[in-house]
Design a protein around this nucleic acid. Structure first.
Length: 559
RNA sequence: UGGGGCGUCGUCAAAUGGUUAAGACACAGGGUUUUGGUCCCUGCAUUGGGGGUUCGAAUCCUCCCGCCCCAGCCA
């Protein structure tokens, strides 16, 4: 899709925003927010959400706040605050000085709750959690009024004050909105507004022992910040009447909640809880394991912010449940890296080649184009010598009829070097090919053919003595099935080969000094970046994504 | 079986009653190529189903079918 196409059709949220601007709603102001709860790491599904929030603000000259929805101290931690900030910044978004916390508003929310009580719209309920559940009714049966529903305003005010003062143990009382226990929308059946939680909060410490519930807190947070369009995921659609109810009762600024479908991706899972199971059980190494759909995992894997943003732009925004093909994400990262990643040569599974007519001890420097997609990337010099490594699967003793690479008696080009012909192969005691004896044509330096002869195959290579050893980690999809949640246990569908570690790789010398995370292409193999596990003298590379592999497809289609 | 949403190509997703239902990814074929990469070209849906309204329906009405969400003192 070209950018022109993207501009021609806008999503339904932007339609609403444009209409509001046109009609002068909110004085034409556009103000959104991204409101994560700091209870875990962000994944690519969150990226969709905050690309929408920040993206809309950008598109219409508005603002977008970052706000931590920290109303439940039992789940939250500063560790998550830091990682969330880091991840959103990494994707290139800026909230300037508008970093807020729901906990900043606890005092105001408490006062608003008193107002609710004063106008008879909320009451302190002494029912236990279990009793509340019984009174709530079911999907098909209405609920019953709490016996505490008609306490006097004075009693409610007093009790609520004492809840705040810490006079009652956890779970013994709640403040509830007085709405309608017979509502067909269960969210409206006198929902809890405050619960007693004697827990230390990561920001407010022990200042509070009552904490506001999401439905009450969120609309007020939006209102206080003057949010005009409050975008959230679709499961909150049922909560919108409640969102509106609180704001109407309190007669405060009233943002509009708009719901959209969350992102699902094939071959992975987006559930924070289930991802945690992978980490806790050692099925992946950590939250930033390069196989994880977390932003930290994708970053370590070598995904770029640009690719992720492009992806989010391409998947669109709508309300229907959908599962985006992982192939689209893979396309986006290839597309981005193809343009920017400098090329290097690395042999992942080395097979030694000896050029028998190349003088021992001789070496020359050959000029390589760093990036054929980007002339400004320039060239570099790569050492060539008598003994080289090529990829083991670039040689077949009895070549497949469409095989264009090296085979006995066949001539191929070594990229930007020489044309070589295989004259013999040496085997070990098990009959496996150990090394190849080849000859080279000195007239073909640089890989050109002065006589105009055509060679179908071009191989990457490294000089044996000049190349540097490295470990390369190849990643594949974490799950073997498109929807890991469709069958019994998602654990059973984990791809046992999602990580393959190659220990005997050889990379060209200039690739040794790459910075951690800097994307490169290893020619013919894929896009890679140096992993933080690398140490002095021990290089570790992650494969971000392979190149498209038509050859593999040919072989597969033959079966 | 209460309520709220949603059903357009294999996957996302446009279309706002009016030419042959965009585009992208995927897939298939072909061309170029010192990466079996990139790039270029070609092919690839009558819109969940049935009725109806209309000169004209993916768009409106109606009945049916299917999928998702809700019974936390989580968000």
């Amino acid at each position: 899709m070209t950018s022109a196409d993207l501009e021609n059709s806008i999503d339904f949220i932007r339609e609403i925003v444009e209409k509001d601007i046109k009609e002068g709603k909110n004085d034409g102001r556009v103000h959104t927010r991204f409101p994560p709860e700091p209870n875990g790491y962000l994944h690519i599904g969150h990226a969709k959400a905050f690309c929408i929030d920040f993206g809309i603000a950008d598109d219409y000259g508005g603002l977008c706040n970052l706000r931590f929805d920290d109303t439940n101290p039992v789940k939250e931690d500063v560790e998550y605050v830091d990682s969330i900030i880091n991840d959103i910044k990494w994707l290139g978004f800026d909230w300037e000085d508008r970093l807020y916390y729901a906990s900043d508003y606890f005092n105001r929310m408490y006062k608003y709750a008193q107002q609710l009580i004063e106008k008879g719209a909320a009451y302190v309920c002494d029912l236990s959690a279990e009793e509340v559940r019984e009174y709530r009714g079911t999907l098909t049966e209405p609920g019953r009024n709490s016996p505490w529903r008609n306490r006097s305003v004075e009693d409610n005010l007093d009790l609520f004050r004492r809840m705040k003062a810490g006079e009652f143990p956890d779970g013994t009382r709640t403040l509830r909105a007085k709405i309608d226990m017979a509502s067909p929308n269960i969210n409206m059946r006198d929902p809890a507004v405050y619960r007693i939680l004697k827990k230390n909060h990561h920001r407010t410490g022990d200042e509070w022992c009552i904490y506001p519930m999401y439905d009450y807190a969120h609309c007020l947070e939006d209102s206080i910040e003057g949010i005009t369009h409050s975008c959230c995921s679709i499961e909150f659609e049922d909560h919108r009447p409640l969102y509106d109810w609180f704001l109407n009762q309190l007669d405060v600024f009233h943002p509009q909640q708009i719901e959209f479908a969350r992102l699902n991706l094939t071959y992975t899972i987006m559930s924070k809880r289930k991802l945690a199971i992978l980490v806790e059980n050692g099925l992946v190494s950590s939250w930033d394991d390069p196989r994880m759909p977390t932003l930290s995992g994708l970053r370590r894997r070598g995904y770029t912010p640009e690719a992720i943003r492009d992806f989010v732009g391409r998947i669109g925004v709508a309300k229907r449940d959908s599962t985006v093909d992982m192939a689209l994400l893979e396309y986006c990262i290839r597309d981005d890296l193809n343009r920017r990643a400098p090329r290097f040569m690395a042999v992942l599974d080395p097979l030694k080649v000896i050029i028998e007519n190349y003088p021992a001890g001789k070496q020359e420097e050959l000029e390589f184009i760093n990036n054929p997609e980007d002339e400004s990337a320039g060239t570099r010099m790569v050492p060539f010598s008598r003994e080289l490594y090529i990829e083991r699967d670039d040689f077949q003793e009895e070549p497949h009829r469409k095989f264009r690479r090296l085979a006995p008696g066949k001539e191929v080009r070594l990229r930007y070097a020489y044309l070589i012909t295989c004259v013999d192969s040496v085997k070990d005691e098990n009959g496996n090919v150990k090394e190849l004896i080849c000859t080279y044509d000195p007239e073909t330096r640089g890989g050109s053919t002065p006589d105009g002869r055509k060679v179908k195959g071009t191989l990457h290579w490294v000089s044996a003595e000049h190349s540097v050893p490295a470990e390369v980690r190849l990643y594949d999809r974490l799950f073997t099935v498109e929807n890991p949640l469709s069958s019994g246990s998602f654990i059973d569908t984990i791809n046992a080969e999602s990580l393959k570690v190659l220990n005997r790789c050889r990379i060209e010398p200039s690739a040794a000094d790459l910075a951690i995370g800097e994307p490169v292409q290893f020619e013919r193999k894929g896009y890679f970046c140096k992993d933080p596990d690398s140490a002095e003298g021990s290089l570790v590379f992650n494969r971000t994504i392979s190149l498209r592999d038509t050859w593999k497809k040919i072989l597969k289609n033959q079966k």
